[in-house]
Design a protein around this nucleic acid. Structure first.
Length: 885
RNA sequence: GCCCGAGUGGUGAAAUUGGUAGACACAGCGGACUUAAAAUCCGCCGCUUUCGUGAAUAGCGGGCGUACCGGUUCGAUUCCGGUCUCGGGCACCA
């Protein structure tokens, strides 16, 4: 007998211990129970920040719904979990709490794992991994050494944010308005050596699967928007690289850069409009200008100020300085002034650009500011060029033809570029070149809590790779960072405890660690090969490529691109057989929450959790600020993704405690479609709770009828009208639910479940031919199971269905009985001149002519058509008729 | 600034992708049950009170309505052009 009240705590505890006792979600390769083969559905691994937040709940519930439905459909489904356990927040927590990052991290993992278990996720925990475990990061080091051997990894200088007070490198996140977040000191750019991975060697291979539908690896299972973002990020552009000759010499009298200052441009058609050139403050010509005129040096240094991000560069005021040096225009021989510009980056291309004020908006502004020449070389018929103000057509290469450009005059963009390129080739001063926006991946971080880069530095033999048999280079776990510099440098046993593999003498160990994007570039393959003494083994070839990857849209570019690149490197090294890791991708929308902060005395921001803040509203009801309980006024930072750094995450634990995992999961799925972003609000969670109670009490109320059995004839002719009507309604809804599962629109799956219950409650249970009621209720339990596994599995067992056909997890998915859908008549919407005016009922099998006749005869047509005769009748089968008069 | 999205009732959203806008819910309002409350159940619920007809801010009918302006179409939340606002990413947050 089903108990009268739904006790979620008892139901969920019992279900979860049953799953644990039976290892319900441990999967093996080639399991004969699953005829449809494997399905690998994986969520992006969480950073162990302390507690789960609603974004995690959303991510894993989507994954879990998918898991359970596909398993019932006959797939061998793998859902693993792990921890992105290296990274900056652990160091910050260590500084704040004076505990080593390792301790903080492992405690967080333990707590969050228990939270996940209380959510009832079908995770195979036997495959759990943590990035900070030497068993895992050993393989980061191993593959890094392989890449060094292949020349994919190399060493060069990189530009970092330097905090002069703390004497440390800052992450972009730690630079706030150009100042260090802890010290408030003005951040400087500094050039230091580091390791890079040649992702640009794979640029074309990374581009084709996102840009070319004819590519064999085209990622058709990815959202269009993500492919577009990756395509633009890789940014293939065809242009011209050429040199401006000059006779500037260095202190020794030799020509600087052999007398050729190279630039790259996609607008070679405007070469005759060049009136100046600009170089980065670190460029050889800028350095030489400083030597020749020492007064300039501090001004050149000042142009290096500010952060390194592209966003910051794009919006900052363009400033420059004339060097007094000149180069020669490659084609005209004119003398062109060399400027140093704060908007020119040494790390992009050649660190120098040509200035065409007439046809580049940035150059136009720069020329106006510093009174440089503006020379029109592209014209559009009927449009007047004026140096007074910028107009969009000046920079549009799609319109216009060349003027004032010698033999290019009259040519359009493409022909003009060809012509100019030919001229440059003849002079041996330039060539056509494909360039990429994509830059090589710098992986060196001057931080403690990451994978040690397996290199030792010998005074005699330089940077030497650690021999393979000495891997892993184990990271000490007892350091507590204090914010000044990298603790590994101060850790004598680590830093100085190495020997040179060449000469055996004492050597310094590399103290840089790897970017944490390395950890997340292949963890999903380690899940397939737990405990292996190789990076991945044959089991990886069974599960990979991953069938469905699920994670936040904020990872659409970097993480996914790095993971694709890493996979291609593994393919190059014959470690895997595939070239793309993720067949299908679902980018769930972010869970957003309000952000409140106050300014601290270091010019940084101190954030406050929204649940401690009372919003301050303006007359329109918009939030303009906040107030703490003690009256402190706060700034409002809009809504943003839930996370640790802005302290606006919401811990799901309260909701799970109060309503249970099933209600929490159901509500999270119901409240928005998976791909939409979602401003968090739990005001409506009661509705989901109420729905589950109704499901429970329906089973309790109709216990006797329902437990009579789900077996029995499904012969349509034996059902009475009540049974037929109920079945038609429920199978119609089931058809929609199955479609919504296919397209991963789980919010309407939940709506569908509610419609099924509404239909059941609306029917007279005792008037329905058995076993139609049990059949319909068993459909409800099955379609509800993926979102609410505890309550459905319990009711399934209690009603005796498990004894009849097996446990819910293992029974077949509910399929639509097409015969139940048949109806004699169909109602069509009637429109007159495109406006809805009523409806007509026709036989289901009525043909177009019959429908047209019925529509023409409808009284509404006469009324709204004002007696005019129909000119045209449009019939949309099964839906609508539009009469045009 | 550049790239990518989103904008629909008081609220979350739906509309099988050009075919009844608001399914399913939340909140609210009205009612039933109850000594009362909770729970439960039933009903209403875009705007138009100076659009018509009504005594009526009840019904019925009409008109309007998917951020804003314009276009294509028999028909547009859906397609096209432009604008605004919000969110994500911009290479050292993860």
């Amino acid at each position: 007998m089903i108990e009268s009240t739904y006790n979620h705590k008892a139901v969920e505890a019992a279900a979860q211990s049953h799953w644990a006792a039976t290892n319900a979600y441990t999967v093996i390769e080639n399991d004969p129970r699953f005829p449809k083969g494997k399905y690998y559905a994986c969520s992006m691994l969480p950073y162990p920040s302390g507690k789960l937040h609603m974004g995690h709940v959303r991510n894993y519930t989507i994954n879990d719904m998918m898991y359970r439905q596909l398993r019932m459909r006959g797939y061998n489904v793998l859902q693993p979990m792990g921890w992105d356990a290296f990274g900056l927040p652990a160091e910050n927590a260590a500084m704040k709490n004076k505990v080593p990052p390792a301790k903080w991290t492992y405690e967080n993992i333990a707590y969050m794992k228990q939270q996940m278990q209380s959510m009832g996720l079908a995770i195979d925990w036997s495959r759990e991994m943590a990035a900070c475990s030497p068993d895992y990061y050993k393989w980061n080091q191993w593959l890094f050494l392989k890449m060094l051997e292949k020349g994919i990894a190399y060493r060069k200088t990189q530009i970092v944010n330097w905090d002069p007070v703390d004497q440390t490198v800052l992450a972009n996140e730690q630079v706030i308005d150009g100042r260090g977040w802890r010290t408030g000191a003005l951040v400087e750019k500094r050039e230091i050596p580091g390791y890079y991975l040649k992702i640009t060697d794979y640029a074309q291979e990374l581009l084709d699967p996102v840009a070319n539908p004819d590519s064999p690896d085209f990622l058709k299972g990815w959202p269009d928007r993500v492919r577009a973002m990756q395509e633009n990020w890789i940014g293939k552009s065809e242009g011209v690289r050429f040199a401006f000759p000059h006779d500037i010499t260095d202190a020794s009298g030799a020509l600087v850069q052999n007398g050729k200052m190279y630039v790259f441009t996609t607008r070679a058609d405007t070469i005759m409009g060049v009136t100046f050139v600009a170089v980065a403050p670190e460029h050889a010509l800028a350095l030489r200008a400083g030597e020749l005129n020492p007064e300039l040096t501090p001004q050149i240094e000042a142009l290096k100020a500010g952060g390194t991000t592209e966003a910051e560069l794009a919006v900052k005021e363009k400033e420059g300085l004339a060097t007094g040096l000149f180069v020669t225009h490659t084609l005209t021989g004119e003398s062109l002034p060399v400027w140093v510009g704060n908007y020119v980056l040494i790390s992009y291309g050649d660190g120098a650009v040509m200035g065409v004020p007439a046809h580049d908006e940035r150059d136009f502004a720069f020329a106006k500011k510093y009174d440089l020449g503006i020379k029109q070389v592209v014209a559009v018929e009927g449009k007047q060029f004026s140096t007074d103000a910028w107009a969009d057509w000046y920079g549009d290469k799609q319109v216009g033809t060349c003027v004032n450009s010698g033999n290019c005059d009259g040519l359009r963009y493409k022909d003009a570029v060809d012509q100019v390129a030919t001229a440059l080739i003849v002079l041996h001063l330039g060539e056509k070149k494909t360039t990429w926006r994509l830059r090589d991946w710098g992986i060196s971080r001057q931080r403690y809590w990451g994978t040690p880069i397996p290199i030792v530095h010998c005074d005699e033999h330089g940077a030497q790779p650690v021999p393979y048999d000495q891997l892993p280079v184990v990271l000490p776990t007892d350091c507590i960072p204090d914010g000044s510099g990298n603790p590994l440098i101060k850790h004598e046993g680590f830093h100085k405890g190495a020997t040179c593999p060449v000469c055996g003498k004492a050597a310094r160990r590399e103290t840089d660690t790897m970017d944490t994007f390395v950890d997340s570039s292949w963890y999903f393959m380690r899940y397939t090969s737990p405990g292996s003494d190789r990076m991945v083994d044959a089991r990886n070839d069974y599960w990979m490529p991953m069938d469905q990857y699920i994670g936040g849209i904020e990872h659409a570019i970097l993480h996914l691109l790095y993971a694709r690149f890493w996979t291609k490197v593994m393919h190059t090294l014959d470690l895997v057989k595939f070239k793309e890791p993720f067949t299908k991708l679902l980018c769930q929308g972010m869970v957003l929450n309000h952000i409140y902060y106050s300014r601290n005395d270091k010019d940084g921001k101190d954030y406050f959790p929204p649940d401690q803040v009372a919003p301050v509203l303006d007359a329109q009801g918009h939030i303009t600020g906040g107030r703490l309980a003690d009256g402190t006024e706060l700034h409002y930072g809009g809504v943003g993704k839930m996370g640790k750094s802005e302290r606006n995450g919401v811990d799901p634990q309260d909701m799970i405690e109060k309503y249970g995992a099933d209600t929490s999961r159901l509500y999270m799925m119901f409240t928005a479609p998976p791909e939409a972003s979602l401003e968090w609000n739990d005001a409506a969670v009661e509705g989901s709770w109420k729905f589950l109670r109704r499901v429970w009490s329906y089973a309790n109320k109709h216990d006797a009828v329902l437990r009579a059995g789900i077996a029995g004839p499904r012969d349509e002719s034996k059902f009475n009208d009540a049974a037929k009507n109920l079945r038609r309604e429920i199978h119609t809804t089931l058809k929609q639910i199955n479609f919504d599962f296919e397209r991963i629109q789980y919010n309407t799956v939940v709506s569908g479940c509610m419609k099924v219950l509404n239909a059941l409650e609306g029917a007279d249970a005792n008037a329905i031919t058995p076993p139609a009621l049990s059949e319909c209720f068993s459909i409800l339990l099955r379609v509800l199971y993926p979102s609410c596994p505890h309550i459905t599995e319990t009711l399934w067992r209690e009603l005796g269905y498990a004894a009849q056909i097996g446990e819910l997890l293992n029974v077949a998915w509910a399929e639509v009985d097409e015969k139940a859908l048949v109806s004699d008549t169909v109602e069509l919407v009637l429109q007159v001149n495109g406006k809805t005016r009523g409806s007509i009922v026709v036989a289901s099998n009525a043909d177009k002519t019959a429908i047209e006749a019925a529509a023409a005869a409808a009284p509404d047509v006469a009324k709204f058509g004002e007696g005019r005769t129909p000119k045209k009748i449009i019939v949309v089968p099964g839906r609508l008729v539009n009469v045009v008069v």
